[in-house]
Write a protein that binds this DNA or RNA. Structure first.
Lengths: 337, 337
DNA sequence: AGTTAGCACTCTCGCCCCGAGAGTGCTAAC
DNA sequence: GTTAGCACTCTCGGGGCGAGAGTGCTAACT
């Protein structure tokens, strides 16, 4: 049973440990956090908290550190989220509007901003259609006599391109006509529709183009690129003082390893923020890590924003900031279309 | 004066040190490299080499390690390049042809392959026109009644896109006509040409589109994205056993810090491979690093391939592999157009 | 019954010391 | 010019040790 006083103490242990990265002693809590009981009482309560599994001992004569259950309880019941201040909001939106280039730069910038705001590794994935994509429009551009560049605009505004070899050389004007013809029949189609149509077309080149279009439509959602930033900042945390751990962290965070981590939240709704702590992570080897994760966008184009860091993380700051960035991204993505 | 024997010894010291990462003793050289003189003779020669600045002493009773001058001499006169074997060539081209997606995935894959081939950090920059770009073709796609997506195909085949707000709502058909009209006048233009034309156009929307096209053409060559891989592998090198050094390395290698490093080789010719060793690097704080760098492509679209690692690097392997990858990329890039 | 002072006990951490080992530079002989 | 021999230097790892921090328990207090 978590009495009110024990809950308070657990909360203070988490906060103190997150701040100092040192095991928290009973004395430190009384002295620096203004508990109006003696350290002996705190010690008794701590022993109870340890029995119940909320905190642990690195060794006999050291202070306490929160267990995964301790963090979980803190996040769910004890913590008061620290709202994103007006000033901070302004800074973030300001930075976010700096972007001159396309979607990719925007995502990469977002990762940087988020990493800066929470002092940990931030990951952003490219938005992609949850439903299978449809073709909005295609275009052909002459590259040389035997090759055309096929550009497909998807219904989520994403561009995909592919080279198409031509049997019959064609001029740009001919290509434009051909694109117009194909557009009339292909617009709004999904991959299988385009494929079916391709087999109906008498002209070999047009059929090839339609087939290429079908492949572009079905393309595995584009490589799910992830943008990551804040690595060197996060590595400054004392938990990585040991070079083996640091190396381990770098290797794990190479973007492709993160995929599986983030996939777990693919079913989350935009607006929802999930926190996965330590042993709750499916990945066995990431017991010391936590992930704060949110989806942004809508079913037509949704992506993931996440912060990854040691379980000793300032959850009350991280969670609202991830949520805020995700909602901003959702808005901006919506405005783009 | 570097006698032949001293040159041999210097070469052996470099090779041995690169391999073992331990200071090289006179005895080790005689025992393991089959020198047919005694260790005392080697010691004498080493003392000379040290006087002349080719090698140094970490401390009095330790073996020798090459200085930057030592590496430089090795690379320029002593080393025999280890050619990329047929089998390795096959593996590399095979991997390189795996790519399904666009340019970006291709570049990122190349970085991975190169990093794997040399066991160090590999960096690849996006190819960009050295000369100012020209417009090949533009296309307009209806997004909604008030917004169109402007897609510009550059003469190097690169796509650029931008949203253009419309005063007059337009259907896709109208947009197609408009694109055809604009293409007739804009194709082949550079930025200032497009800008000049924009101010001549009577229609406000068309002028806006032409202006947007001008900006796309002049767009700062696209953010010069760099693709980096092999970090965690490189960090396994013993020089990073100290966590401070490791942290330092990670921070430096965040892509944006690398720019200045790579810029130094912007004037290199494709085919040329440059090696910059330790103190030769302009960046003061990278004294322990070397860069092997090559340009690929042609003036119309050129990029950089590089390997970055500790000065203790297997130059005879790295240099030919960087050169090989650069030439492959040049070919592939050429074939794409 | 809950709280607290006091105290013995435990464990870590940093420090020093020291011996083993590796490698050099020098000298003297070949 | 080369080499054996040797004294000398410096690093590195391990053991020992004392200081310090923190706990758990007991007994007294409210």
């Amino acid at each position: 049973m978590l009495t009110e006083r024990r809950a308070t103490i657990l909360g203070l242990v988490v906060r103190e440990y997150v701040q100092t990265a040192e095991p928290v002693s009973s004395k430190a809590l009384v002295d620096r956090r203004g508990l109006d009981v003696s350290s002996a009482t705190v010690r008794n309560e701590m022993a109870r908290l340890e029995d119940e599994g909320y905190i642990t001992h690195p060794h006999t004569s050291a202070g306490r550190i929160p267990s995964d259950l301790g963090y979980r309880t803190y996040v769910q019941s004890l913590m008061a989220e620290e709202p994103v201040g007006v000033e901070e909001q302004r800074t973030i939106t300001h930075q976010l509007h700096q972007v001159a280039g396309g979607l990719d730069e925007w995502l990469s910038l977002t990762a940087t901003i988020l990493a800066g705001a929470v002092g940990n590794v931030a990951v952003v994935t490219r938005p992609r259609a949850v439903a299978a994509g449809r073709l909005r429009h295609l275009q052909l551009v002459e590259l040389n006599a035997e090759t055309a560049l096929l550009v497909a605009v998807m219904d989520d505004g994403r561009l995909r391109q592919r080279l198409v070899p031509l049997r019959q050389p064609a001029t740009q004007t001919q290509l434009l006509e051909r694109a117009a013809r194909l557009n009339a029949r292909l617009a709004g189609m999904d991959g299988s529709g385009a494929r079916a149509l391709a087999s109906d077309l008498p002209d070999a080149d047009e059929a090839a183009i339609a087939r290429a279009a079908a492949e572009l439509i079905e393309e595995p959602r584009g490589a799910e690129e992830t943008y990551l930033d804040g690595l060197s900042r996060a590595l400054r945390q004392p938990e990585f003082a040991d070079p083996d751990r640091m190396l381990d962290a770098v290797a794990r965070l190479q973007a492709y390893r993160l995929r599986t981590l983030l996939e777990g939240a693919a079913d989350a709704q935009p607006g929802e923020t999930r926190v996965v702590i330590g042993s709750e992570l499916a990945a066995d080897q990431m017991q010391d890590w936590s992930v704060v994760i949110a989806r942004y966008g809508d079913p037509e184009a949704a992506g993931t924003v996440a912060v990854v860091g040691p379980t000793r993380m300032a959850y009350e700051r991280t969670i609202p900031r991830v949520r805020y960035i995700a909602s901003l991204m959702g808005q901006l993505l919506h405005d783009m279309r």
